[in-house]
Design a protein around this nucleic acid. Structure first.
Lengths: 347, 347
DNA sequence: GTAGTTCGTGACAGCGCTGTCACAGTGATG
DNA sequence: CATCACTGTGACAGCGCTGTCACGAACTAC
């Protein structure tokens, strides 16, 4: 039984008493088959547990029925959610999802040298993957449509969120709560992830300028997103300022979680003394009661998958289409009104 | 440029001045090619950006060079880690990874009706997927080797952890800390995940029996793993007992996180008044300072991928091999010595 | 009733590879 | 010097489909 690859189209044809052509037409749902014949063929196919060999059909059609997805890893909540958004959309379109997780330098070298996706997929979705210029160029060699997800790419289809606008709105939320001293924590180690870190910082600055709050570069600090001590130091630095911040905007929820842990350990009450705002709406954000800017990650994935499907189906499709999705504030318990006591001065 | 599927083997042959057969032999690394010819062919292949069409070769060989993975979702940390373990192992073996995420009833129906993996993969890895008997039987129809990951399946290759032993050791750890009243929280909603919940509970009971601690069924409570109120109620029940537990063993880290949140909200100090032990070593466990039983999830994935590769390469391979991996205690700050005060009586 | 149209089906080539067989060239053996 | 084994290469069929073309039957129109 094992190794038996199943019945062929010809087997089904014989059983149904028709030609292979007719079986092929039936399986592909072409309309030029009479209802009776169709029923007979479908019955035979079911009895033989037949299903089309994509290898054979793609040899003829040049289409593989597969979409490849390139991700910088598989363990982050973000990428899982993005894939989770793609999977149903692709399945619905009858396409399979090929996943390439490329993390280490060895994996990178291997992937970009061999381009295993070549001739194995009809499109490549690149998700939040920081590419070198050489790697970027190499992807064009694949000869299939590229779609960038959660990253912006000139002259190529891209699906992403408006980071600047989101950071702007998040910062405004803090300002509306009365905060004037608002710190910003940005990741020092994007670790292969690509997103518009710069845009988020810009949005933060725009909001401050808008409110006439003078910008204090001391309040912007780089912290390690995953590792230990650096964040403690940054927080210590902020808490020991003459005019310490009453709110901290973390560029990612991962940073916010670690920030909350540090603050809790230091007995700094949130949000009574310091408000904390994150970015992403990480799966655990609700459990941490973290206010955050929610990225529609699943939708990002879904839109990308749908775009891929559209592009594959239509060779004339616009290969430079950009889809920008909104980010919404999810207010939770980690943000509150600015305290009266520690800060005296206004703007 | 787009839509151009690249050079064929024949193009390379012509450029290198050899026959297609020789190019094929070269690309597959067969030994019967002279070094000079090999060099010439490789040069030509590189110049044309050639790579083998798996569709064509699999049509002949019957092998697809792909492994399919069936997962109940893509958003859990656990499955991401399992996939992350598989990916490099498969890449190294030159195989692609096809991911089928099957969550909703509609997706289930579609997957098991159409078996899209049929003839599209050389093996199927089933990861922690709770199958109905009908679905289970359907998978055998695929005609390819099945490998069960993080779940135990009679007469089929399986890679999993020793849940009973792990729960036994975890409970022993609590007993060694002086705890005698140890509660156990098990999930009421496995939500499509398959693991040996029963085995974990058994391990807990074995440890208690071993230590001569009488078993109190009141201390074992079912809680919703993802939803809200049920856990509060269970915790309330435990804390209002005449002899409340001094330690709580949560069957998953997800439960433990929610437990910690509830306890914090209720001002029950951990571990001073109640120790909390989790199970999984979730990516966030360190951030929560949660003591837990660490499953080697990545390794689970890697071993499964290697097993798949072995089985595919050798048709005579043992299709019923079982690999059992160990679970280790990771002691962190959520477990500590049993308090003196609240409980008087011993065993 | 003849010509034109549509519908449903079958025949057949060929997609790009691989596996088998054949065969020329080289060196070893007696 | 004839025989044999071995090495490196090419010729060719065929894997399981799809796309094109051809064709008979059943209509429609005048």
């Amino acid at each position: 039984m094992a190794g038996d690859n199943g019945a062929t189209l010809a087997d089904v044809a014989q059983r149904a008493g028709v030609s292979p052509s007719t079986v092929s037409r039936t399986m592909r749902g072409l309309s030029t088959v009479s209802p009776e014949t169709r029923a007979r063929v479908e019955k035979a196919a079911r009895e033989l547990s037949f299903s089309i060999s994509r290898s054979a059909s793609s040899l003829v059609t040049g289409r593989t029925g597969r979409v490849a997805v390139l991700v910088p890893n598989l363990e982050s909540w973000f990428l899982g959610a993005a894939l989770a958004g793609m999977a149903p959309a692709l399945a619905e379109a009858g396409m399979d999802m090929l996943v390439y997780s490329v993390t280490t330098p060895e994996e990178r070298a291997h992937f970009f040298d061999h381009l295993p996706a070549r001739r194995n997929a009809d499109a490549l979705l690149v998700v939040s993957f920081a590419l070198s210029p050489g790697e970027r160029a190499r992807l064009d060699d694949l000869g299939i449509p590229l779609i960038f997800v959660s990253q912006h790419e000139e002259h190529r289809a891209s699906v992403y969120v408006d980071d600047a606008e989101a950071a702007l709105r998040g910062t405004r939320h803090l300002i509306n709560l009365g905060h004037r001293r608002i710190a910003y924590l940005e990741p020092a180690d994007p670790s292969g992830f690509a997103w518009s870190s710069r845009a988020r910082l810009d949005g933060y600055r725009t909001a401050l300028a808008e409110a006439g709050i003078e910008h204090d570069e001391e309040l912007v600090r780089q912290v390690a997103q995953w590792q230990g001590p650096v964040l403690d130091a940054a927080v210590g630095r902020l808490l020991s300022m003459a005019a310490p911040p009453t709110a901290i905007f973390a560029e990612t929820d991962d940073i916010a979680f670690r920030l909350l842990t540090v603050l809790r350990g230091a007995n700094v009450r949130v949000p009574d003394r310091v408000s904390v705002l994150g970015f992403d709406d990480h799966a655990m954000a609700a459990a941490w009661d973290l206010s955050t800017m929610a990225q529609p990650v699943r939708r990002l994935g879904r839109e990308a998958a749908e775009l891929a499907h559209a592009v594959i189906g239509d060779p004339e499709a616009n290969l430079e289409r950009h889809v920008v999705l909104p980010v919404e504030l999810v207010p939770r318990g980690s943000t509150g009104p600015a305290p009266r006591s520690p800060v005296a001065g206004g703007a």
